[in-house]
Amino acid sequence: MTGTEEPLVIGDRKIDSRLIMGTGGAANLAVLERALVASGTALTTVAMRRIDAVTGTGVLDLLRRLGIEILPNTAGCRSAAEAVLTARLAREALQTDLIKLEVIADERTLLPDPIELLDAAEQLVADGFTVLPYTNDDPVLARKLEQAGCAAVMPLGSPIGTGLGIRNPHNISMIVDAASVPVVLDAGIGTASDAATAMELGCDAVLLATAVTRAADPERMAHAMRLAVQAGWAARGAGRIPRRYWARASSPDVD
């Protein structure tokens, strides 16, 4: 198996891209469309909001026209109860059982509230959802989310929108090694090397938005992310050399 030809499988779905995109932060729908096409993504998030605060359903029309599967999220929810209701509304509005579960503790860090998150995950799994929780880079919490029946776990690399990359690669490795569901690195990606690193650590996919939508040239960065995810996945499969302290010649010894 080479490159990214092996599809990502989440629950009973095959996803034809290991780069999952978000739609937040794009200047307009035309910019977003070019970025999504360049990314090659097959699964993309949307948020749920009160209808009087927005105009039209342009982002849904765009995703459907591009043939991209919709992954609604519960962004903005601060409690399990809020997140569960938002997920149920998303399922009704969009006719999908997929949900990116976000339960945020505070606006300053946007870090997940682990207690509310696990509670919401248990309720949504029991209600028949395919739950993809956005979680802390905590191997114990990731294990508990998997045990609760989540279809994937999505640890952060660093806080949402910071572009600080993967602050604790060892934790990501431990999550990957213990998980039997897909691991999606979600949040904190700044540039292409961060996405490649996530895949080299053994993640099954990367989810990002800001790194593309707020880049100086979103379309070019989307293309870069697509290549980085493919390269990182291929390198992980190829098996990197062990790290050595001292040099080791690659040319034959001189007689």
């Binding site: 949307v46 909001r49 509005a93 938005a209």
Partner: peptide
């Protein structure tokens, strides 16, 4: 009554 729709986000 809450009436929600999908918007750009995430």
């Amino acid at each position: 009554v809450e009436v929600l729709t999908a918007v750009q986000g995430g």
